[in-house]
């Protein structure tokens, strides 16, 4: 049985629901030797501001139980160099490009959206309003319902590209942010960005990260992320792109059952950069085993009905 793995986000069609998460896949071109970029559902590139940024001093990451903290500080080449130096190769390699954009001000998001709308080869914009590691901008929009609504509305007016606000889990009720995004005209929401966290070297009593605090990602966060995707799905109609600790096809499928149309994979790519074909093949196998013709029919199929206990004779 052939399966339809395509997923629609606004006007953008993804070949499959597996996307490389922003900040965990460079600008995509770094991985072109290792993986055929056209086989990924999408490539969300490292967060971009208008200008180049240096990011935080090292140490920028530290491993924690079943996860890692990062405080990269959004080092990046800025949108203009990205368009000049990276986008042509991504286009040539037929990657579906999702540009993760960050602003210190609302105007910066709008300006980025305008510039990227005119660039050839951008599939969608992911609005990073959720980076926990930088003080200015971004997260201040992502932690306020009005801020989220305002930035999404403003970007909506500036572009026809699909827009995907990326939500922070560092709020009490993430579903209300999905609703605010929906009302402001977003095509989907993606979640979760990392959880604000901290690790200390007890011998020296110094923080392990130069930024003191950082964002937790990896398998450790998966159950919380699944719960948040589930809440967003129940709260509105806006499509959800789920992520947080996905390291296998079963993990991706768990997010889809909870309500995600597509998934992103970040930290697991550091461990296994060849993970992409395993994930896509595993999802296809699952659909075939369960007689599901289209991957979008898997989304939100969580079964919560009470069940009678069945006798099994073995």
């Amino acid at each position: 049985m052939p399966c339809d793995l395509t997923v629609q986000i606004g006007t953008l069609t993804l070949g499959n629901p597996v996307i490389a998460a922003s900040g965990c896949f460079g600008y995509g071109v770094e991985y072109a030797d290792v993986v055929d970029l056209s086989l990924l559902g999408g490539v969300a590139v490292k967060g971009l501001f208008l200008a180049e940024r240096e990011g935080h001093p090292p140490q920028r990451i530290v491993e924690t139980p079943a996860g890692m903290l990062n405080a990269i500080g959004l080092q990046g080449i800025g949108v203009h160099r990205f368009i000049r130096e990276k986008l042509p190769e991504l286009r040539e390699r037929r990657a579906t490009v999702i540009v993760n954009i960050c602003g210190s001000t609302l105007d910066e998001y709008v300006e980025l959206a305008r510039i990227l709308s005119d660039a050839d080869g951008v599939g969608a914009l992911e609005l990073n309003i959720s980076c926990p590691n930088i003080k200015e901008g971004g997260i201040t929009f992502g932690c306020s319902l009005n801020g989220t609504f305002d930035v999404v509305s403003a970007v909506r007016k500036a572009t026809r590209l699909p827009i995907i606000p990326k939500l922070t889990p560092n709020v009490t009720d993430v579903a209300s942010f999905a609703r605010a995004s929906e009302e402001a005209g977003a095509d989907a929401v993606s979640l979760v960005n990392t959880f604000l966290a901290m690790a200390i070297d007890v011998e020296t009593r110094r923080p392990k990260l130069s930024n003191i605090v950082g964002g937790l990602s990896g398998p450790a966060i998966r159950p919380i992320a699944v719960r948040m995707v589930y809440e967003c799905r129940r709260a509105g109609k806006i499509p959800v792109v789920g992520m947080g600790g996905i390291a296998s096809a079963a993990d991706a499928i768990e997010f889809m059952i909870a309500g995600a149309y597509a998934v992103q994979v970040g930290t697991a790519n550091f461990v296994d950069p060849f993970i992409w074909t395993w994930l896509v093949d595993g999802i296809r196998d699952y659909l075939q085993r369960h007689g599901i013709a289209r991957v979008r029919d898997l989304t939100g199929t969580l079964d919560t009905t009470a069940r009678e206990k069945e006798w099994t004779s073995s």
Binding site: E30, Y31, P58, Q59, R60, N70, I72, N269, F270, P273
Partner: peptide, 16 residues
């Protein structure tokens, strides 16, 4: 030798 996450340029952690 810096603290490295991926070895392939994906994570920007091992900068100098």
């Amino acid at each position: 030798e810096r603290v490295m996450g991926c070895g392939l340029g994906g994570c920007y952690s091992c900068v100098i």
